[in-house]
Design a binder for these strands. Structure first.
Length: 282
DNA sequence: GACCAGGAAGAGT
DNA sequence: ACTCTTCATGGT
């Protein structure tokens, strides 16, 4: 068991960070411990005030994964451009964007389309359970997220058992494509936002929204502003009243929204998106 | 641009 | 029990 103390003036809320829907493989137990699996290590972590206690990962991993090394106040100050975002920043104070594993994040957001969060979690869990490696930690069973070849070579029937619906061929094709890509993470990380976005959208099942999520959650491209049904509604109500949320979201309208956000909130608009999403009215 | 597939969990009635 | 919505994408 290891612990670390948060630096003064660096807000962090474990509950808000893990509970806001950016990541799908963590569970909070009633005693306050969060259990999750990241890469090939299962771990647990809890927060008591400014103290984080954890097992299964070294402090430097925790610091990096939860972006605790990022100086958050200047970011929040930069995006705090109006009363509405100000309220959202207050409500979800301490929310930080996680540095997710790119491959798992890519598949997760292929699986996320037109689904609610519990359902997305179920799909990711099914893929891991089917093709991943079992790890027992604290009497609980976890499964690592399988690599591209484990999925693409694992058999159509096994993938079908994961009940992905129309997303299944996208996951299969993207996995197959990825087995032929060299140094995907390193290459993508060097590209500027718009180029990285175009590159991601060449994978089947990755459209503008999923690409922006992967850029934001796995590549720390804070310019990305994923527009889903919630964000579109909020943007219509608060910033762009001329939007028509009854019609389906066109690429043109998506671009209108993300360019407005980039202009209005600045280069950390992705952080603004996550706070707006976390504060959405359910 | 409009429409549709593929599908299941959650929320509301 | 039934309907509507859900962190959309790709093809026609």
């Amino acid at each position: 068991m290891t612990s670390l103390t948060l630096a003064p003036g660096q807000p962090f809320s474990l509950d808000r960070t893990l509970g806001c829907g950016q990541v799908f493989r963590w569970d909070r137990e009633k005693d306050g411990w969060w259990y999750g699996i990241v890469g090939d290590r299962a771990m647990r972590i809890r927060q008591d005030g400014s103290r984080l206690t954890f097992e299964g990962a070294p402090a430097r991993f925790i610091r990096h994964y939860f972006s605790l090394d990022m100086d958050l106040p200047p970011v929040l100050e930069a995006i705090d451009r109006d009363q509405f975002i100000h309220a959202a920043l207050t409500t979800s104070r301490g929310l930080r964007l996680i540095r997710q594993s790119p491959w798992e994040c890519l598949v997760s957001y292929i699986c996320s389309t037109n689904s609610n969060i519990p359902h997305i979690r179920k799909r990711i869990g099914a893929i891991a359970g089917m093709f991943g490696r079992e790890i027992v930690f604290k009497g609980r069973t976890f499964y690592t997220f399988p690599g591209p070849s484990a999925i693409s070579c694992g058999g159509t029937d096994n993938l079908a058992a994961c009940r992905l619906g129309y997303r299944q061929p996208y996951v299969a094709a993207t996995s197959c494509m990825m087995t032929n890509v060299q140094r995907w993470v390193e290459t993508s990380a060097t590209l500027p936002y718009e180029d990285a976005r175009k590159a991601l959208m060449t994978f089947p099942g990755i459209g503008p929204k999923a690409a922006d999520c992967v850029l934001l959650f796995a590549f720390q491209q804070y310019e990305a502003f994923p527009v889903d049904v919630w964000i579109r509604r909020i943007m219509q109500q608060q910033y762009l009243p001329s939007l028509n949320c009854d019609a389906s979201l066109s690429n043109r309208e998506y671009d209108t929204i993300r360019r407005f956000a980039r202009n209005h909130f600045g280069k950390y608009c992705g952080y603004a998106q996550e706070y707006l999403y976390a504060a959405r009215e359910r």
